[in-house]
Design a protein around this nucleic acid. Structure first.
Lengths: 226, 226
DNA sequence: TGATAACGTGAGCTTTTACTCACGTTACCC
DNA sequence: GGGTAACGTGAGTAAAAGCTCACGTTATCA
């Protein structure tokens, strides 16, 4: 299922491992500047200060660069997700959760400028599966949270809510990061927070500013231990 | 400012005009199937049942196909916009306006499957300007409506609201049309309507289900003639 | 310190593909 | 009907870019 890194030969010595990293960094930069289609493998090799032969020693073809890059970002994303979710959801409010999530993701995008470009630019078949999986993961994460907060929702509803939230967040983060100046970016992110808060509050039947811990108290499904 | 159709030679006889149309139709289909980068001009010519020479008689290069296609869609979009806006906004509610707009756009996408793909797939420089302009047009349309309904908003706020609404609508329409079955598509569109209604109602200070005509009655800025 | 394997190199091979051009065909005009 | 211009054709060209390979260099291990 996984699209393997597809290296022609795994690096075993330190120098070659560093070289592979350099090639990926170069690919990131070059794809960001020129786009995948316009970028050439010779470009990438030159940027990585290595030879085209070395590039092809570790990557079977141009697509493998894209896949490896996407995997590297996927790992970073996963780390981000597990870093953002475990903050005690009991004491937080819905608005606070959403705000923190959006801010965290925004910081990630700011630190990884190649990410948005990669994910959007490469409608390449090799990436489609990975991107879908990643989007699905994020949608599932939101859906899971939704199901926990609103047990009355059907499974189908949860799926739709997760997909919608994912799509909206992705679009608004992209829009926000089109602006180079922080104030304009923040203004857009503020709208995103408002929009998501309104939507999820209504859709999940959860008040915006009440700590989530208090919600289970009067309800029936108060299993918070688990 | 306008990126001209850039035809190498304008068709004057009927048969050549039909041929140009056929070439554009073929380009639409081929780009949809393979993507712009993978598609070849020979592909397009073959699909149009004509020769590569004829293609290059009317289009100076491959990019010109893309630009001409985008222009054709731009014209259709503009027609759609002017068809959706003039429905008497006084008698309608905010919810109704949003619902009609989303349904109308959805029908357009269903009738023009190449449109989404074209606009998203082609991060090509030749298209960027046109796409931006088109998105800006839509954002301005929403922003204009917002300013009319909520005169208390600053110009900057109106711009942000327009951009956000445009981005969200675009993302959710795309998401909806990823589903081939009508029910799933409708479910997503229903969420889009809810989300947009909640957001604009709050942001503009306009109730969701009150006919817009009644709003100016009790207010201060009742210049509805103009 | 020699043997072996991993690593590094870049000129150039090969394939792809955008694009040309010389020639043939159809339509318009008198 | 013939002259001219618009139209149509597709084998072929040229440039680009992905990728190879034979050879040189560095590291590991005995």
């Amino acid at each position: 299922m996984e699209t393997a890194p597809q290296r022609r030969r795994d690096p075993v010595q330190a120098r070659s491992r560093a070289r592979v990293d350099a090639i990926l960094d170069a690919a990131d930069a070059v794809f960001l500047e020129l786009g995948f289609a316009e970028a050439t493998t010779n470009h990438v090799a030159a940027r990585a200060q290595t030879s085209i032969g070395s590039l092809y020693r570790f990557f079977p073809d141009k697509d493998a660069l894209l896949v490896a890059l996407a995997e590297r970002y996927g790992a970073r994303m996963q780390a981000l997700a597990s870093q953002l979710t475990p903050m005690d959801p009991e004491g937080a409010t819905l608005r606070g959760l959403i705000s923190d999530g959006i801010d965290g993701f925004s910081a990630f995008l700011l630190a990884n400028p190649g990410f948005v470009t990669l994910i959007h630019q490469a409608r390449h078949p090799a990436l489609t599966a990975g991107r879908r999986a990643q989007e699905g993961q994020m949608a599932a994460l939101i859906g899971g949270l939704s199901a926990k907060l609103a047990p009355q929702l059907t499974a189908a509803e949860v799926v739709v809510i997760g997909e919608v939230a994912q799509a909206v967040l992705s679009a608004l983060q992209t829009l926000a990061h089109l602006h180079d100046d922080a104030p304009a970016r923040e203004a857009t992110l503020a709208e995103a927070k408002l929009l998501m808060t309104l939507y999820l509050s209504r859709r999940l039947g959860v008040p915006e500013d009440v700590p989530l811990a208090r919600l289970g108290a009067g309800g029936d499904s108060g299993q918070r231990g688990a």
